[in-house]
Amino acid sequence: MRRVVVDMQNVLFADAIATALRNFDSDFEVYQSESPNTTLDMCIDTQANVLIMEVTAYSPWKIDERLEIRNSVKKQNFDCKIVFVVDENTEKKLADKVRLAKKDGLIDNFVYGSVSATYLSAVIDTL
């Protein structure tokens, strides 16, 4: 069983991701964090294999705050894969920063918010 923690600002988007992952492969066990403050504990408690976090221009979803969570998760569980989701249409500069975070090896992958649920699930499946 692969454990995935989803931390999204938009609850409906988080629900859609969780449903898509479950429908893609019954091997995914998906947990939804209620707030960024509980994400680290949830990753530790579930021994998450993957953490999916939305990045926005607003606190507490800013890229620097997300990278802090990433660092804390990696200290506890080095093997946990980190994936950022960003809206490339409304957050063009932020999308560039997320892309650079991947290029610099700070995150394992990223996806744009406009991708299909099937594509997102396939990306997570390859990690």
Rank of each mutant, 00 (worst) to 15 (best):
Y58P: 00
K97I: 02
V50T: 08
N71F: 06
S114G: 14
E29P: 00
D108G: 11
Y119C: 06
S26R: 06
S33N: 05
A101G: 07
A101M: 08
Y58G: 02
K81G: 07
T90W: 05
V83Y: 00
T39Y: 03
N109K: 13
M1R: 12
D104I: 07
L94T: 06
M8I: 07
A16F: 09
R70P: 02
I107E: 07
F28K: 01
I17Q: 04
S72A: 14
E34C: 02
S59F: 06
N89G: 04
D15F: 07
V5M: 04
N10K: 09
R2N: 11
R22I: 08
F13S: 09
V111G: 00
S121F: 05
N49L: 04
I52D: 01
I124V: 15
T46W: 02
V83M: 05
A16N: 10
E54M: 07
N37G: 03
E91I: 04
D25K: 09
F84M: 06
V73P: 12
L40S: 00
K102Q: 15
T56W: 00
A122T: 15
L94G: 09
I63F: 02
K103G: 04
D45M: 07
W61K: 01
V111H: 01
A20I: 04
C43R: 01
D64A: 14
E88I: 11
P60R: 03
V30I: 04
L127M: 15
D27E: 08
A122S: 15
S72D: 14
E91A: 13
A95V: 10
A57F: 01
L127K: 13
D27C: 02
I63V: 10
F84N: 03
V50W: 00
F24W: 08
F78M: 10
Q9D: 10
Q76D: 13
D27A: 08
Q32H: 03
T56K: 00
K103L: 12
R70D: 10
E88N: 13
L106D: 13
Q9M: 09
L94M: 10
I82A: 11
N37K: 11
I69V: 15
K92I: 14
L67C: 06
E29Y: 04
A57C: 01
D104W: 14
A101L: 08
A122E: 15
A20S: 15
D41K: 11
Q9H: 11
N37H: 05
P60I: 05
F84D: 05
K103P: 01
A14S: 13
L21G: 03
K92D: 03
L67F: 06
Y31L: 06
K62Y: 02
D41I: 04
V55F: 04
Y31S: 07
